[in-house]
Amino acid sequence: MVVLDTNVLLSAYRFAPLAREQLLSAMERLKSRLWIPHRVAFEFHRRRLDVIVDQRAAYETLLALISRRREELNKEIGDSIRQLSRRAALTEADKKKLFEQLELSFDPLVEKVNSLNAEHSAIGIHEEDPILSRLQAIIGESFGEDFGEQARGEALAEAERRKEAQIPPGFKDASKDEFYGDYFLWRQTLDEAKRRSAAHLLFVTSDQKEDWYLKVKGKHIAHPLLTEEVQKNCGAQLVLISTETLLRNARRYLDADVSNETIRQAGEMRKVDSIRERMAFHHAEAVQADRLLREVHAERSELVTRAKSLENFIRVHSNELKHASPSEANRHHAVLSTVIQDRDVIEDQLARVNDKIVALEEVRDRSRINFDHLQAQLQDILEIAELVDSTDSA
C-alpha cells in the first residue's frame, strides 16, 4: 500500500515540465497500490490554486525586476552613449546602432523567462487543468472517505491529546488553527491499512519535521512511535520516504524513466519545503506568542490599576487611622487587614503575570531568530539552485 502526502501531489505543479512528466509516469507505475487519504485530497484541492498562482507570481516578480533594471540601465547607459557621442563625435548612424543594441540587450532574457513561464505555468485558474486530469486518472477511486460525525469528534479529541503529549504525527503543528491535519490523514491511513491487511505501508512525504522523522547521525528515520503504531494497529511495516527517494527507487525497481535532474529537483524541493514548513511553524509560534502577550499585558494593566487603587485606599485609611477614636480604629484595622490581603494576592498575580510575559517574549524572540535564520538558509539554497540551473543551461 503506497500513500502519497499532499506535498507529493502538489509537486506535479511545481516541477519543471520534464520532471513533472517523469513524476506522473512513476505514479502511474504504482497505480494499483496507490491510496490517498481524504484529508490529503482535501488539502490538495484547497492548496492547488495557490500553488498555480505562486508559480505565476514567481515569474511575474522576475519579469518586473528585469523591467525595472532595464529602465534603469537604459537611462544610465543611454546617458553614457550620449556623452560618448559628444566627446568622440560619433555619427548619428553609430549612435543609433548603439541605442538599438541597448534596447535589444534584455530581449533574449525576457523571451527565455516568458518561454519557461509558458511551459511551467501552462495552467490557468479558470482553464482546463491537464495535470489535475492526469492525477485523477492515476488515483481513480483509490481515495478514502471523510470521517463520520462521531469518528471525527473522536479523531479531533485524540489529535488534541497527542498535541499536548507531543505524540507524532502533528504535534509540531500545535500552533496552527488546523493542528489536527496530520493526525487526520494518519488515522485515515491506519484505518485503510488495517482494512486491507497490508503487509507494508509506504508513506511518501516531503515533510521532515520531528513529528514524522527522527534525525540519527545525519539521517532521517521514521519516528519509532509511528513505526510501532503501524505494527500494533495494522500488523504492517512502515516505510517513510521522500519524493526524491520514491523517484530514485521507481527508476531502479520499476524501470521508470527518471533523470538525475528530476531527482535533483525533488531533492531541492524537499529541502525548500522542509525549510518553509519550519519557517511557517516559527512564524505561527511568534504570532501566537504576540497574541498571548497582548492578552497578558491587558491582564497586567488591569492588575496594576487594581493594585494602585488598593494602595490609595490603604494610604487613606492609614491616615484616618492616626486620628481615629478607639472604636473607629478597630473598624479601620479590620478594613485595612482585608484590603492588604487583597493587595498581596494581586501582587502575587502580578509576579506570575510578569514571569509569563518574560517567558512569552523569549518564545517570540527565539521564534523570530529561528525564522530569520531559516530564511537566510532558504535564500542560500535558492541561489545555489539558480547557479546549478545556469551551469546546466550553459
Results as ranks from 00 to 15, higher is better:
Asp173Val: 04
Glu164Leu: 08
Ala159His: 03
Gly144Cys: 05
Ser142Arg: 14
Ala193Gln: 04
Ala159Glu: 07
Thr205His: 04
Ala193Lys: 08
Trp212Leu: 15
Leu185Gln: 12
Leu156Arg: 11
Leu202Tyr: 06
Val204Ser: 00
Lys176Ile: 01
Trp186Pro: 06
Ala199Gln: 12
His200Met: 11
Phe203Ser: 08
Gly218Ile: 11
Glu154Trp: 07
Glu158Lys: 09
His220Ser: 15
Lys215Arg: 15
Glu160Ile: 00
Asp182Phe: 02
Phe143Met: 02
Ala155Asp: 04
Asp211Asn: 06
Gly218Asn: 10
Asp173Tyr: 03
Pro169Tyr: 12
Glu160Val: 05
Phe143Tyr: 01
Glu149Ile: 03
Leu185Asn: 10
Gly218His: 11
Ile221Trp: 09
Ala151Cys: 02
Ser197Asn: 15
Glu160Ser: 07
Asp177Met: 01
Pro168Ile: 13
Gly144Met: 04
Arg162Ala: 07
Glu158Cys: 07
Ala155Gly: 09
Tyr180Asp: 13
Leu156Thr: 04
Glu154Ser: 10
Glu164Thr: 07
Gln166Asp: 08
Phe143Ser: 01
Asp211Val: 00
Ser175Phe: 03
Phe203Asp: 02
Glu178Val: 00
Ser197Cys: 12
Gly170Pro: 09
Ala165Arg: 10
Arg195Cys: 05
Glu210Ile: 03
Val204Asn: 03
Ser142His: 05
Phe184Pro: 03
Trp212Val: 12
Phe184Ser: 00
Ala174Met: 03
Pro169Leu: 13
His200Gly: 06
Asp182Gly: 08
Phe171Thr: 08
Ala174Glu: 05
Asp173Pro: 05
Gly148Lys: 00
Glu149Val: 05
His200Tyr: 05
Arg196Ala: 12
Ser142Ala: 09
Trp186Met: 14
Trp186Gly: 10
Phe184Glu: 02
Arg152Gln: 02
Phe147Val: 03
Gln188Asn: 02
Thr205Gln: 00
Gly144Leu: 08
Ser206Tyr: 05
Glu160Asn: 07
Glu145Met: 06
His200Thr: 13
Trp212Tyr: 15
Glu178Pro: 00
Leu201Cys: 04
His223Leu: 14
Gly181Ala: 02
Leu201Asp: 03
Asp182Gln: 09
Phe143His: 02
Arg195Ala: 15
Gln166Thr: 05
Asp207Trp: 08
Ala155Gln: 08
Tyr180Gln: 14
Trp212His: 11
Asp146His: 14
Ala157His: 08
Glu178Leu: 02
Gly181Asp: 01
Phe184Val: 01
His223Glu: 14
Glu158Gly: 04
Ala222Ile: 12
Glu164Phe: 06
Ala165Lys: 09
Arg187Lys: 15
Leu156Gly: 01
Gly170Asn: 10
His220Phe: 15
Thr189Asp: 12
Gly153Gln: 09
Arg196Val: 13
His223Ser: 13
Arg162Ile: 13
Ile167Arg: 11
Ala174Phe: 03
Pro168Phe: 11
Thr189Val: 12
Ala159Pro: 04
Arg187Asp: 15
Arg162His: 06
Lys172Asn: 10
Tyr183Ser: 13
Asp191Val: 09
Glu210Thr: 02
